[in-house]
Amino acid sequence: MELWTSLPVIVRILLGIVAILLPLLGLVAYYTLAERKIIGYIQVRIGPNRVGFRGLLQPIADAVKLMFKEIVIPTRADKGLFLLAPMIAIAPALAAWAVIPFDAGLVLSDINAGLLYILALTSLGVYGIIIAGWASNSKYALLGAMRSAAQIVSYEIAMGFALVGVLVAAGSLNLGAIVGAQSGSALTWFWLPLLPLFGVYLVSGVAETNRAPFDVAEGESEIVAGFHVEYSGMAFAVFFLAEYANMILIATLTALLFFGGWLSPFPQAWVDGVFLLDDGFHWLLVKVFFFMFVFLWLRATFPRYRYDQIMRLGWKVFIPITIAWILVVGLAVVYKLPPWWAV
């Protein structure tokens, strides 16, 4: 500990970034394997099982393959923007992790407007997709980018309103304080008083990350692969990394904002100091893994939404629900509805 505080600030920040990003990228790699395995089992297949013990080395084989592939740049594509797009896609997906707390006080940057920062950065991710679609000089890519832009802008509103509900309930924009406001037991977490907002947030999160059943931006059966149709090799892999990092981010945020983050589901009096049952990082991990599984579960279960129905769901169903529930939460906070807001 003394050694840690004796280091210069910049070194501590850099070490913190490495300590977050390395496990994150490892998790992304194995999330792709988990996706293929889990969807395989749901569809009564085995999934990849040739590389390494039960297919455990498959992500490494994929990464090596992608690294040695040629990056093809289409004729008359806008070369600079074409190569810039994947970087613009991944930068906000990684930068958002700066304000994510992993345990009480364990956070790289404890800023007051943490939730706002996350919302701003996730709204930047769409630029990677739009620029990729435009710079590819391909009609399928442009169609995919168009769909994606409209979808992300629409669902961002519902997502933002759901988060407004959370911050009214918690009375803070700081992610650590939001988790702290939920302390008690599984029944005092925000999923219960904010149940409609939780549903809207989860579904909007799936739509924001362009995952099935909202993956019209890359609908294979209609527009080949959408915005990344012209990408190959590492340029494609970076888009892939950004998408999975965003999924893990949404899963983590759902756990932090609605499911009490690192808090134990049991009342504090029962588990105080008990090994593994007390509050801790492992509870956050369990919750995050569950929501990561939900992403895959949804993909294996539902067929792709039609585009006009996606727009209807976003604008005519989700936004009215969130606005109505913000009013309910506001009244509950003002009138100190027990057990959540009783002083």
Partner: peptide, 25 residues
């Protein structure tokens, strides 16, 4: 002015300019 700075990114960059870019394309 942290709040205004982040809101500038959120509103102008994240929503207004996306739609603007969309039209210009």
């Amino acid at each position: 002015a942290e709040f205004l700075g982040i809101v500038l990114v959120l509103v102008y960059v994240g929503a207004v300019m996306v739609l603007f870019l969309f039209v210009v394309m």
